[in-house]
Amino acid sequence: MAGKLKFLIPVAVFAGMVAIFYQGLYKDPTLVSSPFIDKAAPAFDLPTLYDDQRRMTEREFRGKISLFNVWASWCPGCAREHDMLLTIAHTTDVPIYGLNWKDERQAALKWLLERGNPYEVNAVDRDNITGIDWGVYGAPETFLIDADGIIRYKHIGPLTPEIWAAEFLPRITSARAMLAGAGS
């Protein structure tokens, strides 16, 4: 009987492969999981955009739930998400911090002047030092950081109302509930 069973091996192996393919079909192969989720925000110490003398560090994120948005004035995706960032800044109490990435100071200042400024503070990372420490691929990227300075979520690409509602809001709500629970 074993002699006959061995001829079933190819079809069994193939069935397994089809199952795997089926799973793989609906995954984007360019998806890459970020190693930073649920880890502390990497340390940095950078000058701020409006005031070269002032420094911003990761300690800024402590005590509240905030966004850290990687952007640059040369980046088309950033232009697309800018209105969304303004909406978040005006209609929610989630502060947005910016990482002005691989950009020219003058161009960045002009950008904020023309389009409005959704950011509390912008750290300037002209040479992509902090960017690499944060595993940044490109702009735009948005990190969600909780009150303990832990990264809870990372979105790559322009932020849209759909992504905000689907990925960010639930995490913000649960992080707040934890915070309230811990505080009481």
């Binding site: 984007d28 360019t30 998806l31 890459v32 999981s33 970020s34 989720i37 990372k154 979105h155 690409g157």
Partner: peptide
């Protein structure tokens, strides 16, 4: 696991 999406090919082709 949370995954991140790399940018549309148009930007990064």
């Amino acid at each position: 696991m949370i995954r991140a999406l790399t940018f549309s090919l148009l930007l990064w082709l």
